[in-house]
């Protein structure tokens, strides 16, 4: 019997197996693609927490993705060049230790999410969509016009950060790190969504008055979810920069925010594993159609429109429904 859980486990296991086989058949490009799928799905899982479960349509999650990327890239490039990053309150040259990079990423992305969330959650509906978009644009234009870190062109980091002496430059090893992160994030989000906090969050999407009337402050619930969401998407940005060894303002672009929403939609809104399926579909689609025509986005556009207009529930929803009809 195919349940949502089974579909999810099957997809996790297949991604893992494909990676192992790709190594065996010496297809490093495929491993990079799989790492990309995983990183994109982590980013979208972060967004899904607020969008799918709290109905907060953030159109600016690229801000956290990009900030995570920039924080990681800046720490790494300073460490690589042995160049002073800050001189107060202590001397700090950056770091190429993954653990330190991730801690800084989580810290900065949480702080940004706290700020953006505290301001944006004062509004709702379309104003919320727009103000989150505007915050991301603000960072985007800042990154473009700030020359110290490459401005519009971005900058390269030459080696991946290190973790417990693992050779992260080897594609499969880096894939394992990403995969491990995916498992952690999936575990955390499924835990949170099914907790009392998660129930309160899911309630905020339907009826704020009702939530207040039982003594729950919806603003705080939403803000905490937003911070958690920003931190998760930030981690994805950090991994993405490490994967490509390249940082650029395009991480912060609004198309990036839009794509995260698309991953969620294609996979199935408000499903914990939805973003994974959606990102996998997206990347596979891009590879497949991209090999026939460089204008593959025309077809992507058509598919998104048809999914929204005719197939609500995304891939998982479709598979579950198909099952029922059989």
């Amino acid at each position: 019997m195919m349940s949502e859980k089974n579909i999810s486990y099957i997809s996790l296991v297949s991604i893992f197996l494909i990676a192992i086989f790709s190594e065996y058949f010496n297809e490093p490009y495929l491993i990079t693609l799989l790492s990309r799928i995983i990183i994109f799905s982590i980013a979208a899982i972060g967004l899904n927490l607020v969008l799918g479960f709290g109905n907060l349509i953030s159109f600016g999650h690229a801000a956290f993705f990009g900030l995570g990327g920039y924080v990681s890239g800046i720490l790494a490039i300073h460490a690589f060049n042995s160049e002073l990053l800050i001189s107060w309150p202590f001397l700090f040259n950056g770091s190429n230790n993954s653990i330190i990079i991730w801690l800084f990423t989580i810290l900065f992305c949480s702080l940004l999410a706290l700020l953006v969330g505290a301001l944006s959650l004062r509004t709702s509906g379309v104003y919320f969509i727009m103000i989150t978009l505007a915050f991301a644009q603000m960072l985007y234009y800042f990154a473009i016009s700030w020359p110290s870190y490459g401005g519009e062109d971005g900058f390269s980091i030459y080696v991946r950060s290190t973790l417990f002496g693992i050779n992260t430059m080897k594609g499969l090893n880096f894939f394992f790190i990403c995969f491990f992160w995916l498992l952690i994030i999936l575990f955390i989000t499924s835990k949170v969504v099914n907790s009392p906090f998660g129930l309160a969050l899911r309630a905020t999407r339907f009826n704020l008055t009702r939530v207040r009337s039982v003594g729950i402050n919806p603003f705080r619930i939403q803000l905490i979810a937003f911070v958690l969401s920003g931190a998760i998407t930030g981690i994805a940005g950090s991994l993405y920069v490490d994967l490509n060894r390249f940082v650029s303002p395009s991480l912060l672009s609004w198309q990036m925010s839009g794509e995260f929403i698309v991953f969620i939609l294609i996979g199935g809104l408000g499903r914990i594993y939805g973003p994974l399926i959606g990102a996998a579909f997206f990347v596979a689609f891009e590879q497949f159609f991209g090999s026939y025509t460089e204008h593959w986005q025309i077809f992507l556009g058509i598919i998104i429109i048809s999914t929204v207009l005719f197939a609500k529930g995304g891939i998982i929803g479709f598979m579950l429904k198909y099952q029922k009809n059989e």
Partner: peptide, 17 residues
């Protein structure tokens, strides 16, 4: 949900409902 509100357990992130 009402019980969670009453007992102020809405910052519990780990118990499964």
């Amino acid at each position: 949900l009402a019980k969670i509100g009453k007992e102020k357990t809405f910052y519990n992130f780990y118990s499964s409902i």
